[in-house]
C-alpha cells in the first residue's frame, strides 16, 4: 500500500528526503563499471512488485510534493506548459492512458468511471472530482494535457509523428535536466538532441528514431538517462540557471554527501492510439550520495563510472566543477 509523504520541497529549504523504501527502489542506472551512449531503448516489461518498473506510470511517496512543485513552477512561469493546436487529439489520448493506468494500478488513489463519453474522475489524494465529456475541451476545467499532467509525477512531452520523423509539439516540462521546452518546441528528434556529444557520430539517433517510429499501441519502450543535481533540485532548468548555477561551485568534502544527488530519468515511449503520436514521459528520481552509498555496490560502481566518463560527457552533464570531490567521497567504497 503506497504511503504518500506530506509535501516536501525541491527548492528554497529543500526538505525533500527519501525513505528507506524509496532508497531501495531507486532505479540505479549503471549495469557496468563504465558508461557510454548506446541505443539503450528496450520494450517495457513489468517489473517486480513495489519496483519503479511495476507499473507503466510510477507513483511514489513523493506524489504530493511533486504535484505541489509543478503548481509552484507554473505559477512562476506558465510557459513550462506549451502545446501546439494540432496536438489536441494526442492530448486526449494521453489523458485516457494516464487515467486508465492510474485508476487501475493505484485504485486507492484514483477512480475512473466511464459511461460512453461521459467520464468521472476522482483523485482522492488531491480531492479532485470532475465529470466531463471525453474529447470535449470545454467540459474540463483546463486543457486535457495540462489537466492530467498536473496530477502526475515527472515531465511529459508529446511528439507528433509525421514525414518519417518526430516533432516535439507539446510538453509539460517543470522538472527538466537542463533543457528548455520554450526553446526546443517544434524541433525534430535529431534537432532537439543537437547538443548531445558523441552520440550523433555513433549513429545512435538514427537507430533510435527508427525504433521509435515503429512503436506499436500497447507495446511501449523505455530507456534510462542520468545526470547529477546539487540539492534535490527537480527544476534544473536553463531558465533558472542563474539561481542554481552557483551551487555547482559550492561542493566541498564536508557537504558533498548531502548536497550532491544522482538524478535518474526513467523515460517511456508510448504510442498514443488515435493520434498516432508518441507520449514521452520523463520520470525523475533523486538520491543523495549519502543515501546512495548505503546500497550494496552502488558507491563503488558509481565511482568507476565517473572515473571512466569521457571528458565530453563530464562537461555536457555539468559535472566538471565537482566530479573530483565526488570521486574522492566515494573512495572508501572502492
Amino acid at each position: 500500500m503506497l504511503k504518500l509523504k506530506p509535501v516536501e520541497t525541491y527548492r528554497d529549504d529543500f526538505t525533500f528526503s527519501n525513505s528507506p523504501e524509496a532508497i531501495k527502489r531507486f532505479p540505479f542506472p549503471f549495469q557496468q563499471d563504465e558508461y557510454r551512449y548506446s541505443v539503450n531503448i528496450e520494450p517495457v516489461r513489468k517489473g517486480g512488485a513495489g519496483s519503479v518498473y511495476e507499473h507503466w506510470f510510477d507513483i511514489d511517496e513523493h506524489y504530493l510534493s511533486e504535484v505541489n512543485e509543478r503548481k509552484t513552477v507554473l505559477e512562476k512561469d506558465p510557459r513550462r506548459y506549451m502545446i501546439a493546436p494540432h496536438m489536441n487529439l494526442a492530448a486526449w489520448d494521453a489523458l485516457e492512458m494516464l487515467m486508465e493506468h492510474f485508476s487501475n494500478d493505484y485504485p486507492e488513489l484514483f477512480t475512473l468511471n466511464k459511461q460512453a463519453d461521459n467520464w468521472t474522475w476522482h483523485n482522492h489524494a488531491l480531492g479532485i472530482n470532475d465529470s466531463f465529456s471525453f474529447g470535449d475541451n470545454d467540459s474540463l476545467p483546463m486543457e486535457p494535457f495540462a489537466y492530467i499532467t498536473r496530477q502526475a509525477q515527472g515531465d511529459w512531452a508529446l511528439l507528433d509523428q509525421r514525414q518519417g520523423d518526430l516533432f516535439m509539439d507539446g510538453g509539460m516540462i517543470t522538472g527538466p535536466a537542463d533543457w528548455s521546452l520554450a526553446f526546443d518546441l517544434g524541433m525534430s528528434f535529431k534537432e532537439w538532441h543537437g547538443p548531445v556529444p558523441m552520440a550523433h557520430e555513433m549513429g545512435v539517433f538514427d537507430r533510435a528514431l527508427k525504433y521509435l517510429l515503429n512503436i506499436q499501441v500497447d507495446r511501449p519502450a523505455r530507456r534510462l538517462n542520468w545526470s547529477m543535481s546539487i540539492n534535490p533540485l527537480l527544476e534544473q532548468s536553463p531558465e533558472s540557471y542563474p539561481d542554481w548555477g552557483h551551487t555547482r561551485n559550492e561542493v566541498s568534502n564536508d557537504n558533498v554527501g548531502h548536497l550532491v544527488h544522482l538524478r535518474v530519468e526513467v523515460q517511456g515511449l508510448h504510442r498514443l492510439p488515435r493520434s498516432n503520436a508518441l507520449m514521452f514521459p520523463i520520470r525523475t528520481y533523486l538520491l543523495s550520495l549519502n543515501d546512495l552509498v548505503t546500497q550494496p555496490d552502488w558507491g563503488r560502481r558509481l565511482r568507476q563510472v565517473l572515473m571512466t566518463l569521457p571528458p565530453e560527457l563530464v562537461d555536457y552533464k555539468g559535472l566538471s566543477r565537482y566530479i573530483d570531490v565526488v570521486i574522492d567521497f566515494l573512495e572508501p567504497w572502492g
Binding site: H86, A90, D160, Q161, Q163, N276
Partner: peptide, 12 residues
C-alpha cells in the same frame, strides 16, 4: 491482431 497503421493521417 491489435490494430496497426501503415496509412496514418498526419495531424499537421
Amino acid at each position: 491482431s491489435p490494430p496497426n497503421n501503415y496509412f496514418a493521417f498526419e495531424q499537421y
